[in-house]
């Protein structure tokens, strides 16, 4: 009978009490079922609403993901364009620099022997400026490579002592013009470092160039110390010094601009950011110690074997 759809049944003959009890049961059950049904309907409506909201959210997310993809593609394209632009600019700038350099060198050779000491001095300064211009271009290019993660290092044995000598004689005219003493301390029997000559050179150019730029009197000392595990390049100056609270942030790019705006003291541009990034690409570290009014000392520590410290 239950199989035929009845809710309950009693077998005749049945006591009235039994029937009443069963009827009451059925009524209670129906009420409960009604309550549950309403509850279910409410929940179903809630779920439907929620599902609608989810669909809407999903659509919004898909749109956002699409927009992000477009933005990422645009950013990548912009970065690529910037890199291409910089490399093109660098190529374009090198041609007139080559012309300038070659004619300067021809004048320097002075085959007619007619140059006066004054003219020779002017040539020396033109020479120094040409080199500075080239160093600036190189630095800018390296910075763009670092920014786009395209910095590559070519490790080879590098005679750091000879490199220090080269950079110092390259920058000496600038120091002499400001009547600064520029001295070097090199180990008596220097050892070659396994590193990237181009990057090591740019690190020195930037550190020594900064020291000359910001020191108005006194001396600049460039020292190379070598231990079994590391090569330490130190550039010390008697410049204005750097406030303690500023010493950490000077390695951030374009700190110089902020500094010049706020206080007329020891500002730096891209140079130190580049030094930090190039040093780290070589597996090394750069540290500064400085006292306002006394001077600054930058220490670059390069590992004995290239990037071994970084496991690259």
């Amino acid at each position: 009978m239950l199989r035929d759809g009845a809710q309950d049944y009693v077998t005749k003959p049945f006591p009235m009490e039994e029937l009443k009890a069963r009827a009451k049961n059925l009524v209670t059950m129906k009420r409960t079922r009604d309550v549950l049904q309403r509850e279910l309907q409410t929940q179903l409506a809630d779920l439907t609403e929620l599902a609608g909201e989810l669909t809407q959210r999903k659509r919004e997310l898909q749109t956002a993901v699409g927009a992000l993809g477009v933005a990422r593609d645009q950013a990548e394209r912009a970065s690529q364009l910037k890199s291409n632009f910089l490399s093109l600019v660098s190529h374009e700038l090198r041609s007139p620099l080559t012309t300038l350099q070659l004619h300067l060198d021809r004048l320097h050779r002075d085959q007619d022997g007619t140059l006066t000491a004054k003219q020779q001095g002017m040539l020396d300064r033109m020479d120094a400026s040409t080199k500075r211009l080239l160093d600036l271009i190189e630095s800018l290019l390296e910075y763009s490579r670092i920014e786009s993660d395209r910095l590559t290092t070519a490790l080879e044995p590098v005679d750091l002592a000879a490199l220090v000598g080269d950079v110092v004689s390259e920058l000496r005219p600038g120091a002499e013009e400001k009547r600064l003493e520029l001295r070097t301390y090199l180990p008596p029997s220097p050892r070659a470092a396994i590193t990237d000559a181009r990057l090591a050179r740019l690190i020195l150019v930037n550190l020594i160039g900064n020291a000359i730029k910001f020191t108005s009197q006194g001396w600049i000392e460039v020292a190379l110390e070598q231990s079994a595990a590391a090569h330490r390049l130190q550039v010390t100056d008697t410049g204005p010094g750097i406030l303690k609270e500023r010493q950490a942030s000077i390695f951030e790019p374009f700190e110089q601009a902020q500094d010049i705006a706020h206080k007329h003291m020891s500002g730096f541009g891209l140079g130190l950011a580049l030094v930090r990034d190039m040093t780290s690409a070589l597996g090394g570290t750069v540290e500064v110690t400085s006292k306002v009014g006394e001077g600054s000392k930058f220490v670059v520590t390069l590992p004995e074997k290239g990037l071994a410290a970084k496991g690259a």
């Binding site: 660098s90 374009e92 090198r94 041609s95 080559t98 350099q101 070659l102 060198d105 181009r198």
Partner: peptide, 26 residues
Amino acid sequence: SGDGAMPSKAQALGIDDFLTKPIRGS
């Protein structure tokens, strides 16, 4: 070459000699 990354490119070209601009007279 006006390209600072010449050493790696030279290898690809099968060339082992290059001068990077700006070139010094000497």
